[in-house]
Write a protein that binds this DNA or RNA. Structure first.
Length: 808
RNA sequence: GGACGAUUAGCUCAGUUGGUUAGAGCGCUACAUUCACAUUGUAGAGGUCAUAGGUUCAAAUCCUAUAUCGUCCACCA
């Protein structure tokens, strides 16, 4: 077969994408006896709509391991999902179609969400496929899909029955922009320059006290002032009553050791509820409740003349009035970190509303224990998990006041408030559209029920991906085979959410870990080391890179750093990957040209020393790379492979080989041909997990394989002990060193690559070097070679090898 | 303020339990095109391993500080 000089990745990759799909080579086989290896992959948010090189890096790093496992003989269960559920999707649709969820019919809004997610899914699937991600697309799930909803509702019912879920009306994190309650994990810090206002409060006896606050708009919600009990300045005022400015409401001066004397004036204003600290004091000291902000972030009746204003407007208005009254002593600029909602960036408020919670605070110890049992790759990522668990201070709020999510399978009796759960058989259920199966309340006999209208937090569903994949309580045979899953793959920023919540769920539902091991990737960054983002314009679209270069090239780049480390995008490194594929291509051309009349037969054996050498090196490489992949270390594997391929195989072995391929010595030639075919086949397999397209193409050409036989379904090379030989490897190293020295000498002395060498003397104790001499002599056109005999010429000391050579 | 990671050649990154002269790719310089490959080959230049101390016969590697970058958490009056 004739190959063109240039490898054409575009055509080849497109071709194999189609063939792989046609024969479904990545399909999980239900009836196989092979051990199962199952992977829990991140379901992308459809709101993202694009895959950038950073995402691609994360997917690829894990996928390489999956390909390796497949070749190791595992029955791979590799599903893909989409997180098309909940708040992120709603916000995305609201923005894209400029709709207001309060002004559009609920059904119409949901339809819009579904339409959008369907479109985005197609884009995603295409992008992931083009990267060569070997997912079994028949295992696709979606978090808004029926199965996921059903399992999420089952999860709720199971937890409720176990007493792990409660509903309570209490102050919670609230986003006034998204108009929903949030959980601790939804928050993010944002630094900003704020203003600290020093405001005069007056005591009953008209003496004034200065209170420092960054939120003067909360004065109408002020319910107490606090000082540190040891603060000498204020000791005498403890228990006194003070009037708030403008509103003239009386509040008491109370004490708390949490108040820092140095902050502000040492006098702290406590409101309903400015921050978590306020909530804490409100609970502990049973303070009054003066809620002035409603769900939209608009001031209500209690705010008096500021009623109807938004938070920012109210702040301006109050500050202006305070100024006019001469009640502001001074204003300072301060850097402050504000808790904002990570999806919209709007500062969170505390608002009281009935919300559902899962008890997690009582189980921190158990979660830590589970964390310690999990195999972490890389290890240091475990610390991030433990930090998060230790720092938890709120139970998990799982209800959201939104539309597009899994409904709670819950009604309440309109009279006595008894909670009525849906029957497991009728799941998934939307209580707004159906009545409960029972016709009257088991407690009071009332016949009217109120459906729960909130929906679940999106993590409530995505925390169940292992159970959704395993069809928990739906398909026992499957569950038994794939659960707990073998591997979770994700990036580090969602340890506190996805990883943590998944452990929570599995702990409660199945009393086990959800997976055996977790692989955590770093971030792919732009060339300046910044996180890629579309809005900042440093967004490198993965499909564009695949289009410009190749998927194999991009995959090669993704192996450039070790697991868990961040990696800057470098177009040059993608090019290096393309270069590698081309080199592999040309090696194949070389092999094909030189095996033209070769016929495979059992009689052919490796008899020549150079062939034995490269086989020994190759076997060592197989050993090393197998070990690296077993430790999820694609980066080390790639480095070993690259070194062997370029430095030993191409630069030296193939050159040495040429001499015999052109010679009349039949056996010497046969040995080389046999070695070439064998070694190239092994090499292809070693490269296959990293660069699946080019290896597939070459494997087929080289072996004349049928279309439906994929290299990715062949077995991983085993170490063949008969070829292992440490001594010969050592001699090979020396050989390379000698050849290098000759080339260097020749170029320096004659400024030419072609100048023949008159004489070479090798002074060494190494025994078998003369086995290589024939080839060296021909390559360098050396007249005479001497062993352990001094000649006239230039001497070079090869120190590490206890060898000297003399060149003339 | 606490935690984790990073800091190695012009750039992107490796560097196993401390062990000769610290590596690769890209880029750069010189030479080479009848050769499987110019998406090439050969040779070469290029590093005080962030800084300062310490442990050791021996430190990029271990310890203690410091600096810078990234991330997470805490603080939020």
């Amino acid at each position: 077969m004739q190959l063109e000089k240039l490898y054409k990745p575009k055509l080849v990759e497109e071709k194999w994408r189609k063939i792989w799909e046609k024969y479904q080579i990545y399909k999980y086989s239900e009836n196989s006896n092979k051990p199962v290896y199952s992977i829990d992959t991140p379901p992308p948010y459809v709101s993202a709509t694009y895959l950038h090189a950073g995402h691609a890096m994360s997917y690829i790093q894990a996928e390489i391991i999956v390909r390796y496992k497949r070749m190791q003989g595992y029955n791979i269960f590799y599903p893909m999902g989409f997180d098309d559920n909940g708040l992120p999707t709603e916000r995305h649709v609201e923005k894209k179609y400029k709709v207001d969820k309060t002004k559009i019919k609920r059904e119409d809004f949901i339809k819009l969400c579904l339409k959008e997610t369907d479109e985005v899914k197609k884009i995603y699937e295409k992008m992931l496929k083009s990267l060569g991600i070997s997912v079994d697309w028949s295992l696709l799930y979606s978090t808004i899909g029926k199965l996921a909803q059903k399992i999420a509702q089952k999860s709720f019912i199971d937890l409720y029955n176990k007493g792990l879920i409660y509903q309570i009306e209490a102050p919670n994190f609230w986003c006034v922009d998204c108009q929903t309650a949030l959980s601790q994990a939804d928050l993010e810090d944002k630094e900003r320059i704020g203003k600290m206002y020093y405001i005069k409060f007056s005591k009953i006896d008209n003496q004034s006290l200065i209170v420092a606050t960054t939120r003067p708009e909360l004065i109408p919600a002020c319910v107490a002032l606090y000082v540190n009990p040891d603060d000498k300045r204020y000791k005498k005022f403890i228990g006194n009553r003070v009037k708030t400015p403008i509103f003239n409401q009386e509040v008491e001066i109370k004490t708390s050791p949490d108040v820092e004397k140095e902050k502000g004036t040492g006098l702290m204003m406590v409101c309903t509820w400015g921050d978590a600290e306020d909530v804490k004091k409100w609970r502990k000291d049973k303070l009054d409740t003066k809620v002035i902000i409603d769900k939209n972030g608009i001031f209500n009746n209690l705010a008096g003349k500021y009623k109807g204003l938004k938070i920012n407007q109210a702040r301006k208005a109050i500050v202006k009035d305070l100024h006019n009254l001469g009640l502001i002593e001074k204003v300072e600029e301060v850097r402050q970190a504000v808790n904002v909602h990570e999806r919209c960036g709007v500062p969170i408020e505390f608002l009281s509303s009935p919300q559902w919670f899962i008890k997690i605070l009582d189980y921190k110890k158990e979660f830590l224990k589970r964390g310690r049992k999990l195999k972490w790759f890389p290890k240091f990522m475990k610390v991030r998990y433990e930090e998060w668990v230790n720092g938890l201070s709120w139970d998990w709020c799982i209800s959201r006041d939104r539309y597009f999510g899994t409904p709670f399978p819950v009604w309440r009796c309109s009279k006595c408030g008894k909670v009525i759960l849906a029957d497991e058989k009728e799941l998934p259920v939307d209580p707004r559209e159906k009545s409960p199966k029972i016709s009257q309340c088991p407690v009071c006999g009332n016949k009217e029920f109120i459906p729960e209208t909130q929906v679940m937090d999106t993590w409530m569903t995505s925390s169940l991906t292992p159970l959704i994949n395993a069809k928990w309580k739906e398909k026992k045979s499957l569950f038994k085979k794939i659960y707990p899953m073998s591997l979770r793959v994700q990036a580090f920023e969602i340890i506190r959410t996805w990883l943590f919540y998944t452990i929570v769920k599995s702990h409660f539902h199945t009393q086990s870990l959800p997976w055996d091991a977790v692989m955590i990737s770093g971030w792919g960054l732009d060339k300046n080391g910044k996180k890629m983002s579309k809005s900042k314009g440093n967004f490198i679209a993965a499909d564009k890179i695949v289009d410009k270069y190749s998927a194999d090239g991009l995959r090669w780049w993704a192996t450039n750093s070790s697991l868990g480390q961040s990696l800057r995008f470098s177009e040059e490194d993608v090019k290096a990957g393309v270069k590698l594929t081309n080199k592999l291509w040309n090696v194949t051309r070389f092999v094909l040209i030189n095996i033209k009349n070769y016929k495979q037969s059992k009689a052919v054996k490796i008899t020549e020393y150079t062939d034995k050498w490269i086989m020994a090196e190759l076997q060592e490489t197989v050993k090393k790379i197998t070990n690296d992949f077993e430790h999820y270390d694609y980066n080390k594997a790639r480095i070993s492979l690259e070194k062997f391929f370029w430095l030993k195989y191409c630069d030296n072995y193939l050159e040495l080989c040429k001499v015999r391929l052109n010679s009349d010595n039949k056996q010497a030639k046969l040995s080389a041909q046999f070695t070439l075919i064998k070694s190239l086949n092994i090499l292809l397999k070693l490269f296959a997990p990293i660069i699946p397209y080019v290896t597939e193409e070459i494997y087929h050409i080289l072996n004349n394989e049928k279309e439906n036989h994929s290299i990715h379904l062949t077995s991983w090379p085993k170490v063949e002990r008969q070829y292992l030989n440490k001594e010969i490897i050592k001699e090979g190293e020396l050989l390379i060193k000698i050849m290098h020295q000759i080339r260097s000498y020749r170029l320096k002395k004659f400024n030419s690559h072609k100048q023949p060498i008159k004489q070479l003397a090798i002074l060494t104790k190494t025994n078998h070097l003369e086995n290589f001499i024939d080839e060296i002599q021909k390559i360098f056109k050396i007249d005479k070679i001497f062993f352990n005999k001094k000649i006239k010429g230039e001497l070079f000391n090869l120190e590490n090898y206890n060898t000297k050579i003399i060149l003339d």
